[in-house]
Amino acid sequence: MWRWLICGLAGMAVGIGSAFSISGGWLSEASIVSGKWSTDPTVGAAAANPWVRATIARVGLLALTKEETIYFNRELDEDGAPLVETCTYALSGQALPTRWWSITIYGADQMLPVNTDKASSIDATRALPAGATSWTGSLSANRPATGQWLSSKGGGRFSLTIRLYNPQSVDRAFLEGLNLPQVKKLSCSGAVAGVGGKK
């Protein structure tokens, strides 16, 4: 009887741990960090463990092979604070050693924020016209007068994903040395439901 009880408790512990791992993010111990951006090199690789595969299935990430696309994610600004809808951020970046890139905003549910702004992504084509080597933009709930813009309206506490298509290399040292876009907080106002216990 005790044997069955112990086995049952062990099974529950494994199940809860797996659920926590899946809901908490898809990065593994092998994650690569570049600034406040991070990636799991097993995404899109045969070596992906069951938790990475399950999380990809849950969030609907279309994971190409890592030679085709590297996915970096971030949930924090340059000061290490969570990215939230009620704050305005300055974006800045430069040309990257990859064929093309795009940055997309995702809400806490891993879906695009629900709004009508049609500004859920920025890409290399728009941000870097011919001859340009650097770019700037903004990330906020309100549309700026000019410039590149990501709308966080309806995003709550959100995250950003940058996709690097056909990167020059997929070696760890190369990826860790990338100078990926910065996200600097400029100002904040109000409160976001579900963030910091505020309603």
Rank of each mutant, 00 (worst) to 15 (best):
W2M: 10
T55C: 01
P144N: 11
G80H: 13
S23G: 05
G131N: 09
P97H: 04
E85G: 07
L96E: 06
A54R: 03
G197V: 04
E75W: 02
P144E: 10
S21P: 07
R99E: 07
R53N: 10
E29A: 14
A48G: 04
L128R: 12
W101K: 02
P144L: 15
E176W: 05
R157Y: 00
L160E: 12
L139G: 04
L128I: 05
V52S: 08
V59K: 00
V84S: 01
L178W: 06
D123S: 09
L96M: 12
F72R: 03
L91S: 11
S23F: 11
S31F: 13
G60V: 01
S151N: 09
G11N: 04
T65Q: 02
L186H: 03
T42A: 13
Q110H: 11
N166Q: 14
G11T: 13
G156W: 13
S121I: 06
I56L: 15
G60I: 07
A57F: 08
T98Q: 03
W4C: 14
S34P: 06
Q94G: 09
P129D: 09
A63F: 01
S151V: 05
L5H: 00
K185R: 15
N166S: 15
A81M: 15
P50T: 10
T116M: 14
G93Y: 05
T39S: 10
K36I: 07
L112Q: 01
A141F: 03
E68K: 07
D171R: 14
N142E: 13
G196V: 03
L91V: 11
K66Q: 12
L91W: 08
L96D: 06
S120C: 03
R53D: 02
T104R: 05
T104H: 08
G147E: 07
P144C: 03
G8S: 03
T69E: 06
S28M: 07
V183M: 01
I105G: 05
G24Q: 07
Y106C: 03
V14R: 01
G147Y: 12
L96G: 02
Q182Y: 04
D117K: 07
F174Y: 15
W51I: 15
Q168R: 08
S187Q: 05
T65F: 00
S34Y: 02
L128A: 13
M12E: 09
S169N: 11
P41G: 06
G11Q: 04
M111E: 14
A10H: 00
L61Q: 11
I122Q: 04
G155L: 03
G155Y: 03
W26V: 02
W100D: 06
W2V: 13
L91Y: 11
A108I: 09
T136G: 01
A130E: 15
G25I: 13
G156H: 12
L178P: 10
T86P: 00
Y71F: 02
S138E: 14
L175P: 13
P167A: 07
L76I: 13
K185Y: 00
D123K: 06
V52A: 11
G15N: 09
L64D: 01
N73P: 00
G25F: 02
E75G: 11
E67Y: 11
V43G: 00
R99V: 11
S31W: 10
G155M: 09
S169I: 15
K199V: 15
S138K: 10
L139A: 04
D40R: 01
P129I: 13
W2Q: 14
S169H: 05
T88L: 09
N142W: 12
G131W: 14
T65M: 02
G196A: 00
P97S: 11
I32R: 02
